[in-house]
């Protein structure tokens, strides 16, 4: 378990972290999600000991690690650009941490073989990093980090430098790996889909603070504020209200609370249909409907329709507030 309390960090004039507190439960896979500059990587590097906080404490498994160098924190860290030891073979890379710990040779060899099997790199022992693809290098880096049986595994945008299709594969693979090797894991990402797909808990970061923490579905359905809502999925603005495009409903006739709008475009995306509208005041918004609904309404661009939210205004926010979450200490 990792617990961070009151951590602040400033780089020159830039406040990277502002009094951040967070708890990561034992065995969980947690995402730090946010746009670039939100402080997520800085927080991860402070947990790792690669960066020192200006204030606050980092406790891992009940031991205060603030001020302890990275070398003695017993963590595994995976970098966006792999940080492979280029002059070492795959075997030597994975064995590095064990060699430093002066484990017997036979034990190291067995452990390296086991790990290369887990990450699917058996048979690549004698290759050099330059002879591996990006995805393979990152799997090697994961094996290297896991070799020393770290108390926590920290991943800094691990798939950020990879192609989209490799990234999707590795994401699923990481989730399976976590089920096999359930070490407490924190992954930094700016990709909400990645966070939603593989993690148990998401901490959304914004301007050096944690905006909200919770399971992916709770964040999606009950976002604490407009930032979390718009960061976790597509949104449309209807008057003062921010809503998900699939929570909007279109009708041919006027009804209470509905606004008049003109269809500007109908985009068929397989089962879903995205209807683009322009309101009377000139604002545009998108609505997501099923193919059946679109056909029943016989939508064509130029049609005049009525649009309203299925959910009462502010429902999402009030639901969360009644739970008291934003005022209570943030915990995952």
């Amino acid at each position: 378990m990792i617990s961070v309390t009151g951590v602040s960090k400033r780089f020159g004039d830039f406040q990277a972290l502002d009094d951040v507190s967070l708890e990561v439960p034992e065995g969980s896979l947690t995402a730090l999600l946010g746009p670039s500059g939100s402080g997520k990587s800085t927080l991860l590097r402070i947990v790792a000991g690669l960066e020192a906080p200006d204030a606050g404490d980092v406790v891992i498994d009940g031991r205060n690690q603030t001020g302890v160098p990275a070398q003695r924190r017993e963590i595994g860290f995976v970098f966006q650009h792999y940080a492979a030891f280029k002059h070492m073979s795959v075997r030597e890379n994975v064995a590095f941490g064990l060699k430093i710990r002066k484990r017997p040779k036979a034990e190291i060899a067995a452990r390296v073989d086991e790990l290369l099997g887990i990450v699917g790199l058996s048979g690549y022992q004698d290759r050099y990093p330059s002879q591996l693809s990006g995805g393979q290098r990152q799997r090697m880096a994961l094996a290297r980090a896991l070799a020393v049986e770290p108390r926590v595994l920290l991943l800094d945008e691990p798939f950020g430098a990879l192609d989209a299709n490799v990234r999707a594969d590795l994401r699923r693979w990481l989730r399976r790996l976590h089920e096999e090797v359930p070490v407490t894991t924190v992954i930094v990402t700016h990709d909400q889909e990645e966070a939603m797909e593989i993690t148990d808990r998401i901490a959304v970061m914004h301007d050096g603070r944690i905006a909200q923490v919770g399971p992916p579905r709770e964040l999606y359905e009950q976002p604490a504020d407009d930032f979390v809502m718009s960061f976790l999925g597509p949104v449309s603005r209807l008057g003062e209200q921010l809503v998900r495009p699939h929570d909007l409903r279109i009708t041919a006739d006027a009804r209470d609370g509905a606004l008049e709008a003109m269809v500007t475009r109908v985009v068929h995306l397989g089962f879903e249909v995205r209807v683009e509208l322009v309101l009377g005041d000139g604002a545009s918004l998108a609505v997501q409907v099923t193919r059946g609904e679109a056909e029943a309404l016989e939508l064509r661009s130029g049609d005049i329709v009525w649009v309203a939210s299925d959910r009462p205004a502010g429902e999402a926010f009030t639901a969360l507030r009644s739970g008291g979450a934003p005022d209570a200490p943030l915990s995952v």
Partner: peptide, 11 residues
């Protein structure tokens, strides 16, 4: 980065 990686591995 390689040096940081080595540090996290206990070097």
């Amino acid at each position: 980065e390689q040096e940081q990686a080595a540090a996290t591995l206990g070097a």
